[in-house]
Simulated assay, not measured.
Amino acid sequence: MEKISIIYLVLPCYNEEQVIEDSAEKLKVLMDDLKEKERISTESRVLFVDDGSTDSTWKLLQDICHDQSLFGAIKLAHNRGHQNALLAGMMTVKDSCDAVITLDADLQHDISAIPKFIELYEQGNEVVYGIRQSRNGESGFKRFTGDAFYGLMEMLGTKVIKNHADYRLLGSKALQALSKYEESNLFLRGIIPSIGFQSTTLEYEEKPRLAGESKYSLRKMIQLAMAGITSFSVRPLQLITFCGGVFFLFSIVMLIYAICVYAQNGSVPGWTSIVAPIWLLGGIQLLALGIVGEYIGKIYLETKHRPRYEIEAMIINQNGDKE
Protein backbone atom coordinates (compact mmCIF):
# COMPACT_ATOMS: atom_id res chain seq x y z
CA MET A 1 0.00 0.00 0.00
CA GLU A 2 1.37 3.43 -0.97
CA LYS A 3 2.38 5.58 1.97
CA ILE A 4 0.20 8.65 2.56
CA SER A 5 2.33 11.74 3.13
CA ILE A 6 2.32 13.78 6.33
CA ILE A 7 1.96 17.38 5.19
CA TYR A 8 2.44 20.41 7.42
CA LEU A 9 1.27 23.89 6.48
CA VAL A 10 3.44 26.65 7.98
CA LEU A 11 2.02 30.18 8.12
CA PRO A 12 4.02 33.10 9.56
CA CYS A 13 1.82 35.88 10.92
CA TYR A 14 2.37 39.33 12.35
CA ASN A 15 -0.56 41.36 13.72
CA GLU A 16 -3.16 39.32 11.82
CA GLU A 17 -5.99 39.43 14.38
CA GLN A 18 -8.46 40.54 11.70
CA VAL A 19 -8.00 37.48 9.50
CA ILE A 20 -6.53 34.67 11.60
CA GLU A 21 -9.81 33.04 12.65
CA ASP A 22 -11.23 33.12 9.14
CA SER A 23 -7.98 31.67 7.76
CA ALA A 24 -8.02 28.85 10.32
CA GLU A 25 -11.62 27.98 9.44
CA LYS A 26 -10.83 27.76 5.71
CA LEU A 27 -7.71 25.70 6.32
CA LYS A 28 -9.61 23.26 8.52
CA VAL A 29 -12.17 22.67 5.75
CA LEU A 30 -9.37 22.06 3.25
CA MET A 31 -7.30 19.76 5.48
CA ASP A 32 -10.32 17.74 6.61
CA ASP A 33 -11.30 17.23 2.97
CA LEU A 34 -7.78 16.10 2.00
CA LYS A 35 -7.68 13.67 4.93
CA GLU A 36 -11.12 12.29 4.12
CA LYS A 37 -10.01 11.65 0.53
CA GLU A 38 -6.77 10.07 1.86
CA ARG A 39 -4.68 12.57 -0.03
CA ILE A 40 -2.73 13.36 3.15
CA SER A 41 -2.13 11.52 6.41
CA THR A 42 -4.36 12.12 9.42
CA GLU A 43 -1.17 13.23 11.21
CA SER A 44 -0.92 16.29 8.96
CA ARG A 45 -1.12 19.60 10.79
CA VAL A 46 -1.23 23.40 10.39
CA LEU A 47 1.39 25.45 12.24
CA PHE A 48 1.09 29.20 12.75
CA VAL A 49 4.24 31.18 13.60
CA ASP A 50 3.52 34.38 15.51
CA ASP A 51 6.39 36.71 14.66
CA GLY A 52 6.18 38.81 17.83
CA SER A 53 2.73 40.29 17.18
CA THR A 54 1.68 43.28 19.28
CA ASP A 55 -2.08 42.76 18.87
CA SER A 56 -4.26 39.82 20.00
CA THR A 57 -2.97 37.40 17.35
CA TRP A 58 -1.30 35.07 19.89
CA LYS A 59 -4.36 34.97 22.14
CA LEU A 60 -6.52 34.01 19.16
CA LEU A 61 -4.01 31.36 18.12
CA GLN A 62 -4.07 29.86 21.61
CA ASP A 63 -7.86 29.58 21.46
CA ILE A 64 -7.74 28.03 17.97
CA CYS A 65 -5.12 25.45 19.01
CA HIS A 66 -6.97 24.48 22.18
CA ASP A 67 -10.22 24.00 20.27
CA GLN A 68 -8.81 22.07 17.31
CA SER A 69 -6.01 19.48 17.44
CA LEU A 70 -5.32 20.18 13.75
CA PHE A 71 -3.60 23.45 14.65
CA GLY A 72 -0.34 24.26 16.38
CA ALA A 73 1.42 27.55 17.01
CA ILE A 74 4.76 28.92 18.08
CA LYS A 75 5.43 32.43 19.35
CA LEU A 76 8.76 34.11 18.66
CA ALA A 77 10.12 36.17 21.54
CA HIS A 78 10.68 39.14 19.26
CA ASN A 79 9.74 40.28 15.78
CA ARG A 80 12.45 38.69 13.63
CA GLY A 81 11.00 39.24 10.18
CA HIS A 82 9.10 37.12 7.68
CA GLN A 83 12.10 35.05 6.53
CA ASN A 84 13.14 34.04 10.05
CA ALA A 85 9.53 33.26 10.98
CA LEU A 86 9.27 30.96 7.98
CA LEU A 87 12.51 29.24 8.93
CA ALA A 88 11.44 28.84 12.57
CA GLY A 89 8.25 27.07 11.51
CA MET A 90 9.98 24.77 9.02
CA MET A 91 12.77 23.81 11.41
CA THR A 92 10.22 23.11 14.18
CA VAL A 93 8.33 20.51 12.09
CA LYS A 94 11.04 19.17 9.74
CA ASP A 95 11.38 15.89 11.67
CA SER A 96 7.62 15.35 12.00
CA CYS A 97 6.50 15.45 8.38
CA ASP A 98 7.23 14.35 4.83
CA ALA A 99 6.79 17.83 3.36
CA VAL A 100 6.04 21.42 4.38
CA ILE A 101 3.99 23.96 2.46
CA THR A 102 4.63 27.59 3.44
CA LEU A 103 2.06 30.31 2.77
CA ASP A 104 0.86 33.63 4.15
CA ALA A 105 -1.60 33.75 7.02
CA ASP A 106 -3.93 36.12 5.15
CA LEU A 107 -4.44 33.36 2.51
CA GLN A 108 -3.64 35.62 -0.42
CA HIS A 109 -1.84 32.50 -1.57
CA ASP A 110 -4.64 30.45 -3.12
CA ILE A 111 -5.13 27.38 -0.90
CA SER A 112 -7.06 25.59 -3.66
CA ALA A 113 -3.63 24.98 -5.24
CA ILE A 114 -2.43 22.91 -2.26
CA PRO A 115 -3.71 19.54 -3.64
CA LYS A 116 -1.72 20.23 -6.82
CA PHE A 117 1.39 20.99 -4.73
CA ILE A 118 1.00 17.57 -3.10
CA GLU A 119 0.44 15.86 -6.44
CA LEU A 120 3.64 17.36 -7.87
CA TYR A 121 5.54 16.31 -4.74
CA GLU A 122 4.28 12.74 -5.12
CA GLN A 123 5.58 12.79 -8.69
CA GLY A 124 9.10 13.11 -7.33
CA ASN A 125 9.60 16.86 -6.97
CA GLU A 126 11.36 17.75 -3.74
CA VAL A 127 10.66 21.46 -4.18
CA VAL A 128 7.55 23.03 -5.75
CA TYR A 129 7.49 26.81 -6.26
CA GLY A 130 4.20 28.68 -6.39
CA ILE A 131 4.26 31.27 -9.19
CA ARG A 132 1.76 34.13 -9.34
CA GLN A 133 -0.11 34.13 -12.64
CA SER A 134 -0.68 37.87 -12.45
CA ARG A 135 0.12 40.78 -10.13
CA ASN A 136 -2.99 42.83 -10.83
CA GLY A 137 -3.57 43.54 -7.16
CA GLU A 138 -0.24 45.35 -6.82
CA SER A 139 0.50 48.99 -7.57
CA GLY A 140 2.45 49.90 -10.68
CA PHE A 141 5.37 51.00 -8.49
CA LYS A 142 5.51 47.65 -6.69
CA ARG A 143 5.36 45.70 -9.95
CA PHE A 144 8.11 47.85 -11.45
CA THR A 145 10.42 47.54 -8.45
CA GLY A 146 9.75 43.79 -8.22
CA ASP A 147 10.63 43.25 -11.88
CA ALA A 148 13.72 45.43 -11.46
CA PHE A 149 14.83 43.34 -8.47
CA TYR A 150 14.45 40.03 -10.33
CA GLY A 151 16.34 41.50 -13.27
CA LEU A 152 19.14 42.76 -11.02
CA MET A 153 19.48 39.39 -9.25
CA GLU A 154 19.71 37.64 -12.61
CA MET A 155 22.36 40.13 -13.77
CA LEU A 156 24.34 39.47 -10.58
CA GLY A 157 24.29 35.73 -11.28
CA THR A 158 21.89 34.70 -8.49
CA LYS A 159 19.21 32.16 -9.28
CA VAL A 160 15.79 33.31 -8.11
CA ILE A 161 12.33 32.23 -9.24
CA LYS A 162 10.49 35.16 -10.83
CA ASN A 163 7.08 36.01 -9.35
CA HIS A 164 7.62 33.55 -6.51
CA ALA A 165 6.71 34.86 -3.05
CA ASP A 166 7.47 32.13 -0.48
CA TYR A 167 4.46 29.97 -1.44
CA ARG A 168 6.27 26.66 -1.84
CA LEU A 169 6.49 23.01 -0.89
CA LEU A 170 9.68 21.53 0.53
CA GLY A 171 10.14 17.79 0.95
CA SER A 172 12.01 16.24 3.88
CA LYS A 173 15.32 16.05 1.97
CA ALA A 174 15.17 19.73 1.08
CA LEU A 175 14.24 20.61 4.68
CA GLN A 176 17.20 18.69 6.07
CA ALA A 177 19.50 20.39 3.55
CA LEU A 178 18.08 23.80 4.46
CA SER A 179 18.81 23.16 8.15
CA LYS A 180 22.55 23.15 7.33
CA TYR A 181 22.46 26.77 6.15
CA GLU A 182 23.39 28.81 9.19
CA GLU A 183 23.79 32.38 7.89
CA SER A 184 22.08 35.23 9.69
CA ASN A 185 21.60 37.22 6.49
CA LEU A 186 18.63 35.09 5.49
CA PHE A 187 17.13 35.14 1.99
CA LEU A 188 15.15 31.95 1.45
CA ARG A 189 14.15 32.84 -2.11
CA GLY A 190 17.82 32.58 -3.04
CA ILE A 191 18.92 29.82 -0.66
CA ILE A 192 16.31 27.24 -1.64
CA PRO A 193 17.02 27.29 -5.41
CA SER A 194 20.72 26.85 -4.57
CA ILE A 195 20.04 23.66 -2.59
CA GLY A 196 19.31 21.62 -5.69
CA PHE A 197 17.00 18.56 -5.84
CA GLN A 198 14.32 18.01 -8.45
CA SER A 199 11.93 20.96 -8.55
CA THR A 200 9.06 22.38 -10.56
CA THR A 201 6.71 25.36 -10.55
CA LEU A 202 2.96 25.72 -10.11
CA GLU A 203 0.96 28.76 -11.18
CA TYR A 204 -1.77 30.13 -8.93
CA GLU A 205 -3.98 33.21 -8.81
CA GLU A 206 -3.21 35.49 -5.88
CA LYS A 207 -6.25 36.47 -3.81
CA PRO A 208 -7.00 39.94 -2.41
CA ARG A 209 -6.65 40.47 1.35
CA LEU A 210 -9.94 40.12 3.19
CA ALA A 211 -8.93 42.64 5.87
CA GLY A 212 -5.96 44.53 7.22
CA GLU A 213 -2.90 45.69 5.32
CA SER A 214 0.15 43.98 3.88
CA LYS A 215 2.99 43.80 6.40
CA TYR A 216 5.57 44.10 3.63
CA SER A 217 6.22 47.85 3.70
CA LEU A 218 8.60 49.57 1.28
CA ARG A 219 11.28 49.55 3.98
CA LYS A 220 10.95 45.79 4.49
CA MET A 221 11.01 45.14 0.75
CA ILE A 222 14.22 47.15 0.44
CA GLN A 223 15.74 45.23 3.36
CA LEU A 224 14.77 41.93 1.72
CA ALA A 225 16.30 43.05 -1.58
CA MET A 226 19.55 44.09 0.13
CA ALA A 227 19.69 40.76 1.96
CA GLY A 228 19.26 38.93 -1.33
CA ILE A 229 21.97 40.91 -3.11
CA THR A 230 24.58 40.80 -0.34
CA SER A 231 23.89 37.14 0.51
CA PHE A 232 24.48 35.73 -2.95
CA SER A 233 26.73 37.98 -4.98
CA VAL A 234 30.08 39.77 -4.68
CA ARG A 235 29.61 41.38 -8.09
CA PRO A 236 28.86 44.83 -6.58
CA LEU A 237 32.36 44.72 -5.07
CA GLN A 238 33.79 43.60 -8.41
CA LEU A 239 31.90 46.45 -10.08
CA ILE A 240 33.58 48.93 -7.72
CA THR A 241 36.98 47.55 -8.74
CA PHE A 242 36.05 47.82 -12.43
CA CYS A 243 34.79 51.40 -12.05
CA GLY A 244 37.96 52.30 -10.14
CA GLY A 245 40.07 50.99 -13.02
CA VAL A 246 38.02 52.88 -15.62
CA PHE A 247 38.24 56.18 -13.75
CA PHE A 248 41.96 55.66 -13.13
CA LEU A 249 42.53 55.32 -16.89
CA PHE A 250 40.29 58.32 -17.51
CA SER A 251 42.32 60.39 -15.04
CA ILE A 252 45.54 59.54 -16.91
CA VAL A 253 43.95 60.70 -20.17
CA MET A 254 42.83 63.94 -18.52
CA LEU A 255 46.33 64.46 -17.07
CA ILE A 256 47.90 64.08 -20.51
CA TYR A 257 45.31 66.49 -21.92
CA ALA A 258 46.04 69.06 -19.22
CA ILE A 259 49.79 68.86 -19.87
CA CYS A 260 49.25 69.30 -23.62
CA VAL A 261 47.01 72.35 -23.04
CA TYR A 262 49.58 73.85 -20.67
CA ALA A 263 52.41 73.25 -23.18
CA GLN A 264 50.45 75.13 -25.85
CA ASN A 265 49.93 78.09 -23.50
CA GLY A 266 46.21 77.33 -23.46
CA SER A 267 43.83 77.44 -20.52
CA VAL A 268 40.82 75.49 -19.37
CA PRO A 269 38.07 78.05 -18.78
CA GLY A 270 34.87 77.37 -16.96
CA TRP A 271 33.77 76.53 -13.49
CA THR A 272 31.56 73.57 -14.58
CA SER A 273 34.47 71.57 -15.94
CA ILE A 274 36.05 71.64 -12.49
CA VAL A 275 33.04 71.22 -10.21
CA ALA A 276 31.16 68.54 -12.20
CA PRO A 277 33.94 65.91 -11.98
CA ILE A 278 34.33 66.63 -8.26
CA TRP A 279 30.64 65.97 -7.62
CA LEU A 280 30.63 62.92 -9.90
CA LEU A 281 33.67 61.29 -8.34
CA GLY A 282 32.53 62.24 -4.83
CA GLY A 283 29.15 60.57 -5.39
CA ILE A 284 30.76 57.44 -6.82
CA GLN A 285 33.14 57.22 -3.87
CA LEU A 286 30.33 57.53 -1.34
CA LEU A 287 28.27 54.92 -3.18
CA ALA A 288 31.26 52.57 -3.26
CA LEU A 289 31.86 53.08 0.46
CA GLY A 290 28.19 52.34 1.13
CA ILE A 291 28.33 49.06 -0.80
CA VAL A 292 31.53 47.99 0.95
CA GLY A 293 29.97 48.99 4.27
CA GLU A 294 26.94 46.75 3.59
CA TYR A 295 29.20 43.75 3.11
CA ILE A 296 31.31 44.57 6.17
CA GLY A 297 28.11 44.91 8.22
CA LYS A 298 26.93 41.48 7.06
CA ILE A 299 30.29 39.95 7.92
CA TYR A 300 30.09 41.57 11.36
CA LEU A 301 26.66 40.05 12.02
CA GLU A 302 27.68 36.61 10.74
CA THR A 303 30.77 36.43 12.97
CA LYS A 304 28.66 36.96 16.10
CA HIS A 305 26.79 33.66 15.51
CA ARG A 306 23.73 35.01 17.28
CA PRO A 307 20.54 32.89 17.14
CA ARG A 308 18.23 33.87 14.30
CA TYR A 309 15.16 33.57 16.52
CA GLU A 310 14.05 32.52 20.00
CA ILE A 311 10.81 30.63 20.60
CA GLU A 312 8.96 32.05 23.60
CA ALA A 313 5.98 29.67 23.62
CA MET A 314 4.83 26.63 21.67
CA ILE A 315 1.60 24.71 21.22
CA ILE A 316 2.16 21.55 19.17
CA ASN A 317 -0.67 19.04 18.87
CA GLN A 318 0.62 15.56 18.05
CA ASN A 319 -1.85 12.78 17.24
CA GLY A 320 -4.69 14.83 18.63
CA ASP A 321 -3.01 15.54 21.99
CA LYS A 322 -2.71 19.11 23.26
CA GLU A 323 0.29 20.66 24.97
Score class of each variant (00 low, 15 high):
Val46Trp: 08
Leu47Ile: 15
Leu47Glu: 02
Phe48Trp: 06
Phe48Cys: 11
Val49Phe: 03
Val49Cys: 04
Asp50Gly: 08
Asp50His: 07
Asp50Lys: 11
Asp51Ile: 08
Asp51Trp: 01
Gly52Asn: 01
Gly52Ile: 07
Gly52Glu: 03
Gly52Met: 04
Gly52Lys: 03
Gly52Gln: 06
Thr54Cys: 07
Thr54Phe: 09
Asp55Leu: 02
Asp55Lys: 03
Asp55Ala: 08
Asp55Pro: 12
Asp55Gln: 08
Asp55Cys: 09
Thr57Ile: 05
Thr57Tyr: 07
Thr57Lys: 10
Trp58Asp: 07
Lys59Leu: 14
Lys59Met: 11
Leu60Trp: 00
Leu61Arg: 00
Leu61Gln: 05
Asp63Ile: 14
Asp63Met: 13
Asp63Pro: 00
Ile64Thr: 10
Ile64Arg: 06
Cys65Met: 11
His66Ala: 14
His66Gln: 15
Gln68Tyr: 14
Gln68Trp: 07
Ser69Asn: 04
Leu70Pro: 12
Leu70Thr: 10
Gly72Ile: 04
Ala73Phe: 12
Ala73Arg: 08
Ile74Thr: 12
Lys75Ile: 06
Leu76Phe: 09
Ala77Lys: 15
Ala77His: 09
Ala77Gln: 15
His78Glu: 15
His78Asn: 09
Asn79Thr: 00
Asn79Gly: 07
Asn79Tyr: 00
Arg80Val: 15
Arg80Gly: 02
Gly81Ser: 00
Gly81Thr: 01
Gly81Tyr: 04
His82Val: 14
His82Cys: 13
Gln83Cys: 04
Gln83Asp: 08
Gln83Met: 05
Asn84Tyr: 02
Asn84Ala: 02
Ala85Ser: 15
Ala85Cys: 09
Leu86Phe: 09
Leu87Met: 01
Leu87Glu: 01
Leu87Cys: 06
Ala88Asp: 14
Ala88Thr: 12
Met91Pro: 11
Met91Ile: 03
Thr92His: 11
Val93Pro: 13
Val93Cys: 06
Lys94Cys: 14
Lys94Val: 10
Ser96Phe: 07
Ser96Trp: 06
Ser96Thr: 06
Asp98Lys: 14
Asp98Trp: 04
Asp98Gly: 11
Ala99Trp: 03
Val100Leu: 04
Val100Asn: 08
Ile101Asn: 01
Ile101Glu: 00
Thr102Glu: 02
Leu103Lys: 05
Leu103Gln: 09
Asp104His: 12
Asp104Lys: 08
Ala105Gly: 14
Ala105Phe: 12
Ala105Thr: 03
Asp106His: 10
Asp106Cys: 05
Leu107Tyr: 05
